[in-house]
Design a protein around this nucleic acid. Structure first.
Lengths: 104, 104
DNA sequence: TGTATATTTCGGTATATGGCGAAATACCGA
DNA sequence: TCGGTATTTCGCCATATACCGAAATATACA
């Protein structure tokens, strides 16, 4: 389900990986080199991203090249927009400047 | 940060809550009534959604009415789109019909 | 075939998460 | 102020997740 997609997107390292791949495909090693975690940990993140369909891997000799699968990201966007979809502006006055612990 | 937003979105129950709120604001009780989990569990989900800024609560007498905060959902959409942003179509041939364990 | 390189898989650990019921809190109406 | 309704907060437990280093696998090349 697309639940796997949202779960995959929940981790900041995985979003960072997607961000890199959004700029161009890269090998597992090149990606891993940009993060403080061990290669095995990053490999685990690849597995989650693959399982969600967010990335695709392609072997090039000794190395594995990862590519982003844009359509799946776009599907997630569509789901989010559909949440908001049915117009409901009925926010109370306080909602304008509502407490956004968000930025912590 | 917006990490809280993506984590909040990772849970299917919370997305379902947002889906309901997208159609109109509801009281905590009315929402809880639509899920199999206990009221306290659903309340926990509200706390996560609030902390992410995805919803806002307003007291109306004995009850708490929850409202969706559309702008935060839209911010998340923007982040996702920015991941894909920088055009990179360089998918290998196999990517077309790539294995999407997604739909399990 | 044997060695080096790239990457994943495995086993383990610590922490986070989602679930529950019971108790606490907030508000209403008598 | 007291009892009732609505909702959250508080332990508590089970499972999931992120992380690591070591071992296994895959490919290249001499």
């Amino acid at each position: 389900m697309n639940n796997d997609v949202f779960r995959a997107l929940a981790d900041p390292t995985r979003r960072a990986i997607l961000h890199l791949l959004g700029k161009g495909s890269l090998t597992a090693g090149d990606i891993a080199a940009q993060f403080p975690q061990s290669a095995s940990t990053i490999s685990g993140h690849f597995a989650v991203l693959m399982n969600a369909g967010l990335v695709v891997q392609e072997r090039q000799g000794q190395r594995l090249v990862y590519h982003i699968n844009m359509s799946v990201v776009e599907d997630a966007v569509a789901v989010l927009l559909s949440l908001v979809g049915s117009t409901n502006g009925a926010q109370p006055a306080e909602a304008k400047d509502a407490k956004r612990n968000d930025d912590e």
